[in-house]
Nucleic acid binder design. Sequence first.
DNA 1: GCCGTTTTCGGCCCGACTGTTTTCAGTCG
Length: 572
Amino acid sequence: MDNLTIARLFSEAADLMELGEENPFKIRAYRNAAQLIAALPAPVTSLSPDERRALPGIGKDLAARLDEVARTGRLQLLDELRAKTPASLLEIKRLPGIGPRTLLMLWREMGIASATELEAAIHAGRLRTVRGFGPKKEATLLKALASNRDLVARHLLPDCLARGDALRAHLADAGPQARVVLAGGIRRGTELCSGIDIVAAGTARDLASIAEAFRSYSLVETTEESPGGLTARLWGGMQARLVMCAPTAFGATLVWHTGSDAHITHLQSRAEEKGLSFADGALQRGRTTLSTDSEETFYDALGLAWVPPELREGLDEIELAASGALPTLLEWDDLRGDLHMHTTASDGKVDAEAMAAAARDAGLDYIVITDHSPALAMVNGLDNRRALEHADHVRALDRRVKGIRVLAGIECDILADGRMDLDDEVLASLDFVIASLHSALTQPRAEITARVIKAIEHPSVDMIGHPTGRKLLRREGADLDIDAVLDAAAAHGVAMEINGQADRLDLRPSHARKAKARGIPIAVSSDAHSPRGLALKRWGLTVARRAGLTADDCLNARPLPAFRKALRRHRA
DNA sequence: GCCGTTTTCGGCCCGACTGTTTTCAGTCG
């Protein structure tokens, strides 16, 4: 069982314990364990019991729970909790404004145990009778319930990719001669996926054993036949779809099942122009199906260059592929620096030295340490005095450490009125300043747009961090006039961030395209809170590629001198 | 439930905002 699945068990147990009014510190211990496991480099099941016990935050009890999962693949505690409290309660807990207290009250006093029941209760006016509920809260809840419906059965990309990769490897083992690859949204890198799509091409014999391996996979709960293959519901609710084809149909089948729908529609038009047809995963001239043993062959038949999956969104990629003008997309190895990370000075897990060592080992040339400002009291944000001391500390580290440059920065809150959360002189003395929204995200469009623009106009601000503040599957983020914000950023030479946290991915691809069109430097940053977190740039990179960004568009793809020059110019 | 060189008990991140109250509970980050 993979780490993400195990982390989810502990996280769900924590959620359910919260409803049982357990000791809050016990709940936190389970949450911390979930976070730890999700971030472990090696499968937690591959560690010895002693190694598990030695993990920070894993004591006697949690180590025993982990042993149980490693041994049996189940967590009995979770089964017991699920028996006591309906799991459907947790879909309500995801709604904004509903915390554990409210949830418990709704369930105990009113018998509301699911999103559907909550919606019915609101419409029946039953919530009005409850202390603490008024028209405003009803309105926010109804809005959230509506968007929640759209999000049912959608999952974050890393969740889908981790499970998809594990399933793909399992199927590939069953048919060593076959080609077994991920398709669908996972392959295109969409930030939310509806499930796992896998295409397998091989001999009839190989395909038969792959289908059998799919049916008997440990996480599969139910399977049914679907066109060209099988569909399964996985434990935890995710869907997995397997499509099988002959090797000569691999190219067209993979294109078809990679999508997107809009891209396929454009390909169909292109096929018609060439006297061909493309339907149900088959490329045909008249009644003859053309052999496409690879995607390259498929695109070539349409007079197109191979289109990277991240660009297959039905925008301008077909024209570009026809004229040989597809961009050379940004790659992992292009990233020279990381401009956003936290340390134990605020809410990070390790100190600046450990982050620097990890970044150097990961091959980076430079990093910026950007801890929080004091508005975020909960994360021990730095006030003026501590920010200056921390900068001194980081610069001393920079002189001492070999093989990487470490710059002193800050992630400074943009206060509700648009002022910065630290003194101007302090910000001016740092090497790099990120300005971010963390609170009052529900301000009206005009107000919150003006607030971000005011931050952009501040002479010491170099970059806006996670501009809209969205949290995928949880909240929409600020109602920003993104065009106005980007116009201001372009005018003032302020960079924009693509934040790599999997539930942020903010800027989103459409916004990043607009930023590129204005010539705004775009950073792909990790917002890491631990050494492992540095790898989160991977998801930001996917967004950048979906936006058609090249290395030239990316601020932290520049070598340190060029990166610095870009900042100096804007400060001059 | 975890942790500890001041260790087996008593700590463990806390302040602002919101919608509702009429002085505050609950949520959020």
